[in-house]
Write a protein that binds this DNA or RNA. Structure first.
Lengths: 240, 240
DNA sequence: TGTGCCTGATTGTCGGACAATCAGGCAGGA
DNA sequence: TCCTGCCTGATTGTCCGACAATCAGGCACA
């Protein structure tokens, strides 16, 4: 998510070389994300600056900066003069995430034919990986990650870094919501099958059918996420 | 962009009340954005922390935080250990912004019929405002802003805060690129006409035609932006 | 031409400081 | 009982000063 590369303006034969320049802030932010995704700190938990600073052995300034990053990613929420809290997903938010990811992934799927071969291969690979993870011992966090990797590869078919960045933020919110939700495992193999049919449609060139299939899949995913979060899920939201 | 509202959990009769709680950091960031959009500091300009702190009469910490915000919005770029610079738009970036906004705006247009009446009215209003601005004395910055407001209202038809937030970031990047570019004015009235036909198509319910029209309009906008930036515009980018 | 070193400028991180703000409790009055 | 005003502790927002790490550029030297 940080990606430090500084190629000199001349195209040299060392284009493949790169070096990780991780700052303290980055490492703090990474650790916080991990804790969030693994459900070590649940939604609504306050992220106190001093407490975190002492716990992680860094200064308050550094913590503040890392928290700012989480807030701008939507994983945490800042209430002025009150502090930063782990984001709580309300039905409105879940629905919005669903709508947004649908736009991005469908846009990707519709671009299947125009996309690069690497992008298409990434989809195939992600599906294979998901199958591997689903049929082996794995934590809920890993399972969710592998599942989302498929959808990410669909959004990546747009081959737009900016759209993909938004997609990543959306998947991060989903991971946040699904942390500790173990029920996913039951459906794991069904999910594999569902995604496989989607890929089959794409390989056949039936793009529009695939898009509709994906939309159906996503709307199902949204309501099952509502359920998982013990929210008043489904259709009955107050209009306006 | 900050939006501080804290409604009490009980639904009271004071739902309409709200109060601006602007922090120092927010004001600094706003001022920096303004300077960028007005072309007071061009692309590539280094944003030195100490210099800004002295110029604006705030501490370095505050400046740092504001710069972090600009960076996360894409208006500035951080080079580790070297500083923050006003983002320079290369052809790759321009193309990506174009592709991304196209996805969002087309998604909005396709949703015209399902969108709320307010969202549709916003489009009509934005068009009217643009006409007003185009036929009066106005700075390039204002003209660009009014033009982009139309496109923003299209993206807003998705009625997804998250998609709209990305759209806003994209428009900010465009404003950054178009700062000081005065040539827009010539085409202003043509632009009004072009958008008016788009709206007409929508009002008639010819959504797909409108979507294609929009895509055409956007691809034209992209190449004319390339031109305005004196970049090697058009189709000939190196593949990969 | 290329390498090694020095130096100044700037960032990244730290620690401490203090006013402003907020939540919660407690007392007093209608 | 319910409301209001006040006090207090906790936390944030902002400031200041400090210092090592890093980088760009120049200069000497082979």
């Amino acid at each position: 998510m940080v990606g430090v590369t500084r190629p000199s303006s001349e195209s040299s034969p060392f284009a493949t070389l790169s070096l990780e320049h991780s700052s303290t802030v980055d490492r703090v932010a990474d650790e916080l994300r991990r804790a969030l995704f693994d459900g070590e700190v649940g939604p609504g938990t306050p992220l106190r600056e001093i407490a975190l600073a002492e716990a992680m052995g860094v200064s308050r300034s550094t913590i503040r900066e890392a928290l700012g990053a989480l807030v701008s990613e939507g994983l945490a929420t800042r209430e002025p003069n009150r502090g930063v809290f782990v984001t709580e997903l309300d039905p409105e938010a879940v629905h919005d995430v669903g709508r947004a990811r649908s736009v991005l992934e469908v846009a990707g799927v519709r671009r299947w034919a125009e996309a690069s071969e690497e992008a298409r291969d990434a989809v195939r690979q992600a599906l294979a990986d998901f199958h591997t993870v689903a049929t082996s011992e794995s934590t809920p966090s890993e399972l969710t990650a592998a599942h989302l990797a498929i959808h990410r590869s669909l959004a990546a078919l747009t081959e737009s870094p900016r759209l993909l960045a938004l997609a990543d933020a959306l998947y991060a919110e989903i991971r946040l919501g699904l942390a500790k939700v173990d029920r996913i495992r039951r459906n794991a193999l069904d999910q594999v099958a569902s995604h496989r049919t989607l890929l089959t449609l794409l390989e056949r060139g039936e793009v529009e059918t695939a898009a509709r299939e994906l939309e159906h899949h996503l709307s199902h995913a949204e309501s099952s996420m509502m359920e998982a979060l013990h929210l008043p899920g489904g259709e009955g939201r107050s209009p306006g």
